[in-house]
């Protein structure tokens, strides 16, 4: 497995309660650029191999459908892991609630009523520890908070390897004119600071994005950009970029459509025991319009 795929798998596993392997997790909005007095969007959230198809598991989000139920398709005896927390920020920075949530076999779905003009941000962020170890010869994985680590992971676990993880998944949607308030970074984990507004992307034009780790520009971050519609072509069409010294990448969109962007970085800087390294990942679904 390619190293960056492996990290994707791990990062996603942390974020995604049910996927242990290298699937992609994403949210897909019905529209990202809206006009009119009373716009709504509907959003699908899923974990899948191909973009953007519903084929593996729903992305389980708190408050969206019955997340207490054991998901269909789970191995026998599986218990649902905690659902991830979705936060939706309105243009004024306040948090708003999704509506009409439902959890299906392959996807979660919810609606958002865009009552303010400007840019909304949908985010699913997680921070915690990821551990892998052997117990009775079996490889075990664990993920959770630092507080639970000592309680839940055997102190004498063999081949114990612990990472400190941050994951963040985002979607941007604009009603009327784009605004900047929700683009303000939180200063935790790997984040996108757009120089080109994420709802102002056009085929054939370059977009500039800066990646921040804990609020500071992050050099050498690997960024992958994949157009949706994978099922109907032979090549993945992935663009691979690396952030420069200022944390910046420039992406020229070849075609209009929905894209999935993923960035990841690992470091040993600032890592505290029991973790021996740190992994941070960021992903976003971006819509590129025809000029």
């Amino acid at each position: 497995m390619k190293p960056n795929l492996k990290w994707a798998a791990v990062a996603l596993a942390v974020c995604l309660p049910l996927s242990a392997e290298a699937h992609r997790a994403w949210m897909l909005p019905s529209a990202t650029v809206l006009s009119g007095e009373d716009p709504w969007i509907t959003v699908d959230a899923a974990v899948s191999n191909d973009l953007f198809y519903f084929e593996h598991f729903p992305l389980r989000l708190q408050g969206i459908g019955d997340t207490e139920a054991v998901p269909a398709g789970s191995p026998p005896g599986a218990r649902p892991r905690p659902a991830a927390r979705l936060s939706v920020l309105a243009p004024d920075g306040s948090e708003v609630q999704p509506q009409n949530g439902s959890l299906g076999r392959y996807r979660s779905t919810f609606d958002l009523h865009l009552t303010q003009k400007g840019t909304y941000k949908l985010a699913v962020a997680n921070a915690g520890l990821f551990a892998s170890y052997k117990e009775n010869g079996q490889t075990r994985r664990w993920m959770g908070s630092a507080a639970d680590f000592a309680k839940q992971v055997p102190a004498d676990a063999e081949e114990l390897k612990v990472s400190q993880t941050n994951t963040r998944m985002e979607v941007f949607v604009t009603s009327g004119s784009p605004s900047e308030t929700v683009l303000e970074p939180t200063g935790q984990g790997l984040e996108l600071r757009p120089e080109t507004h994420p709802n102002d992307l056009f085929a054939g034009e370059a977009a500039e994005f800066v990646f921040l780790l804990d609020g500071k520009p992050a050099a050498g971050v690997e960024v992958s950009v994949i157009p949706g519609g994978i099922r109907y072509r032979d090549q993945l069409g992935e663009m691979n970029l690396t952030t420069d010294a200022a944390g910046k990448v420039s992406i020229t969109w070849p075609n209009p459509g929905m894209y999935w962007l993923e960035a990841e970085t690992r470091t040993t800087a600032g890592v505290t025991a029991p973790a021996s390294e740190r992994r941070a990942s960021y992903s976003a679904t971006l819509e590129v319009l025809a000029p």
Partner: peptide, 11 residues
């Protein structure tokens, strides 16, 4: 003002 919903199609 439902007609304004489609103004974005004049993209």
């Amino acid at each position: 003002d439902e007609g304004e919903k489609w103004l974005k199609d004049l993209r």
